[in-house]
Design a protein around this nucleic acid. Structure first.
Lengths: 346, 346
DNA sequence: AGAAGTTTAGCATTCGAATGCAACAAATGA
DNA sequence: TCATTTGTTGCATTCGAATGCTAAACTTCT
């Protein structure tokens, strides 16, 4: 038998049972409908009734029950935010959460280990009748269809689908890679290697192929392409492989900042290379650690705030009108000229 | 007038109206109660009925409406996770989210800019009748009281309250700081400075006072205490101040890893100091970047996984029995012997 | 077979707020 | 002043699943 808190048991506050709109109505001498309207923006309530209700609300400490409201309106104020554990950009999630909150929406967070856990997530968010979904992971087309059939607005971040019409905001990966490639080549680099992220990551694939394409245009062939996961350790291992191979690159294009940081640390601390004198290393994302003095990465900064705002605007527009046609918004990144690579103006 | 998706408008899937338990009941030729019981673990349903319902569920693609369920049971499966924007430890949130998910709970994430935004958050989570709260921020006592009156289980992470009985899991900050201080002093350091976090952060205060106390015990007085916020820039500025002052420390104890990283970068890249030859720098947390080769911090690693598991265990025990007495669980940290400081065995 | 005990099924009610509708009051216009 | 418009209010119903209670079906035992 469980011990119980003597405090809770003795102070008589045992059944602090929730205050409902009926309690408020009785206290204020009005109907429950009036109380409901009081909390409905734009509903017509006279000043006199307003005052009475306000008083009762304060006296009783009433807070509307969002659950009951969602049941009748058939929609909650929850927005599902789906991110992958590894590609997890904390700043993005944080900014997104605050922006949602500022608009009166709450964040239902789903952190996936593997993108295959999506099944479970879709069930959950549907059970909660979320008002919308922001996904920074890839969802299988059947889930996208399901959401669109249920008229749940969905916005992807940095994912584009070829055939399915979906909403998305993204940073122009191709353009960013072109800038990096051009800068490196103009500075005289010719032995360029690429460190790719996981092969099932569309973000990685797009960045890598954009870089490779641009190189091809210029008439340069990557000396090697190494696949790693999007982690610091992945970057270190990739650098180790490159150093051990015969390619001997003089520049490395990494699929994100984390990989670039790993490469730099391995190059400096394990291989004794100087950066950028011996080797240039560039990343992608514009993450905070990449800008630390120890790394000072050349990278492409994604405009996080703009992207978050755009995502939420799209989401809210579709919450108001679920039939709005799909739209893709692509933002340019910003070339950050750090000291991790020799880069020429182009 | 808004344009509409020709696709959605033409494929006839316009009103995919939600499947309810009544629909399933009709399809399966049973009562709605039976369907409900089918989804209630431990409820008595015969094998035959089970089969009929399962079939109907699959055919119609039914998912119980969590909103309706919460309304009647008066409790949702949502757990509010409240973190501060700045002290935000992404790994912690991520691990916590997954652990909750594994137990069938969903994460309602609140990211606070300033701990004073707590008012708003408390309203929100009460509106959603969350099953519990995990707070990595300080909540004013009136909120703690309110939650306890409403019988909403609350577990703090790395916060202890003096007077109010609350549940908490934490890492033993004092012990950790003692280890650091002892190690530094045993290595001969005497001119020790402290870089504190924001003054309204209990975590910072506790770490700083523990370190100062231990120093006092040994008979050493900190040469200077600088206040900074828990950021990289804060660390850099703190280091700059220390270097500009007359104290000239030979070791710096930082209230967290982020500050230590900032100090190191400033010392190396702006002041031209060698670490740890010219100055020892230690942190606290055991964050991932602190372990990167460029920093290789001496720090105290918090046992994130243990703490998360403990937090969830406590939470779930109190969801089952809200009257359980409060409990505080304190875990030892782990001294990480990096290369950012000269440290002696003690 | 019949009595007693155990499952299982269904009915009816409940949770708390939103809303269409009708009744009514206040404000405007003729 | 009366008719019309506009603004408020309350009643009754609705959302979808959970559950106490009773009745029916099935077991088990004598």
């Amino acid at each position: 038998m469980a011990r119980r808190s003597t405090q809770a048991a003795s102070d008589g506050a045992d059944k602090a049972k929730p205050v409902t709109s009926y309690d408020v109505a009785r206290e204020a001498g009005v109907s429950q409908s009036a109380v409901s309207r009081y909390f409905t923006p734009g509903a017509s309530v006279s000043a006199r009734t307003r005052a009475k209700i306000l008083k009762a609300v304060n006296k009783l400490g009433y807070q509307p029950n969002a659950i009951a409201r969602s049941l009748i309106t058939r929609r909650s104020s929850l927005v599902a935010v789906v991110v992958a554990n590894l590609g997890f950009n904390p700043e993005f999630t944080s900014v997104l959460g605050q922006a949602l909150s500022a608009r009166g929406l709450n964040t239902l967070l789903f952190t996936l280990d593997h993108e295959s856990d999506a099944d479970h997530v879709i069930d959950q968010l549907w059970q909660y009748r979320v008002a919308g979904v922001v996904a920074a992971v890839t969802l299988p087309p059947r889930h996208v269809d399901m959401l669109s059939q249920r008229e749940i607005p969905l916005v992807f971040v940095n994912r584009a689908y070829e055939d399915v019409p979906v909403n998305s905001v993204s940073c122009d990966q191709s353009e960013g890679e072109r800038w990096l490639v051009d800068g490196l080549c103009a500075a005289g680099h010719r032995r360029i290697a690429i460190v790719s992220g996981p092969e099932d990551s569309p973000v990685s694939r797009q960045r890598v192929s954009s870089a490779a394409d641009r190189l091809a245009n210029i008439g340069v062939k990557p000396v090697e392409i190494v696949v790693a996961d999007f982690t610091y350790q992945g970057g270190r291992e990739a650098m180790r492989k490159l150093a051990a191979g015969s390619a001997q690159p003089d520049a490395i294009i990494c699929a994100n900042d984390m990989l670039a940081i790993g490469c730099i640390d391995e190059a400096r601390h394990a291989l004794g290379l100087r950066i950028p004198e011996d080797i240039s290393i560039v990343g992608f994302d514009g993450s905070a650690p990449g800008q630390w003095a120890s790394y000072d990465l050349v990278t492409i900064r994604q405009p996080t705030n703009l992207m978050v705002d755009a995502a939420i605007d799209m989401l809210m527009a579709r919450i108001d009108d679920p039939q709005l046609i799909t739209e893709k918004r692509v933002f340019s990144g910003e070339l950050v000229r750090g000291a991790s690579a020799r880069l020429a103006d182009t």
